[in-house]
Design a protein around this nucleic acid. Sequence first.
DNA 1: TGCCAGGCGAAAG
DNA 2: CTTTCGCATGGC
Length: 279
Amino acid sequence: MYTIKTEDFNLEYTLDCGQVFRWDRDGDWWTGVVNGAVARISQNPETGDLRVDSSLDEAFFHRYFRLDDDLPAIFRQINKDEHMDIAINKYRGLRLIRQDPRECLISYMLATASNIPRIKKNISMLSALFGEEIENGHYSFPKVEALASATCDDLCECKMGFRTARIIKAANAVANGDIVLDELFSLDYGEAKNELMKLEGIGEKVADCILLFAFEKMEGFPVDTHVEKIVKAYYGNDPYFEGNATKSKIGNWGRHYFGEYCGYAQQYLFYQKRLEGLI
DNA sequence: TGCCAGGCGAAAG
DNA sequence: CTTTCGCATGGC
């Protein structure tokens, strides 16, 4: 057990906002499986200090929770209007998380046309069946090799529906080197997005999630059904849309309007919509 | 019960 | 180019 000092970090918002699917809260403590290890974390609401019980060290969580991001500087860039001002003040401390690329890829392919409780259940089942048991009842996220050698029948217990075949194909593409994920880090946003979208089951939205959450592409602006509704409600009259705010236009608008850190803006809007609906 | 879900891709207009 | 549908299943 050890302590991590933090500033401008809110554990609850960061783990609850819907970007990660393997953390659960029990009272003051969050328990999750990350990087093949179990971790338990709580936050002192007065000081912001984290208490951490895990074999993973402080450096790992510093990187995982993006404590290197200068949040006030990011806020100054994305705080373009009263909507964002309200969201970032209310949910201040929500940080993006640096996810494992392979886990993020599979998780967001699985998230298409689903909902967060169901996604969490699917991933939990997938890990129990194809991951490794770390502690009693806690399983690591499956390696792509384990998913690549599975069949649709093997995966039927996970109830992933039409997503099952796509995930097996993508796992094969990663496992046999048809796509080399680590190379995406050195590509720019547009190039990396094109590479991801070559995989069946990855369109603009899923690609943006993966790029934002796992590949350091902060200009990812995922436009799902919630963000589409928010932007139409708050910003639909912006002349940029010429009266027709399609999903693809909304993504480009978000990058243009919020700038370099639009991915942070998207996540604050998304979380606010989930908790409060349209205001 | 029926609608919709952190969508995508093929088909049709 | 834009719009419409089917997909497989469960949460609400």
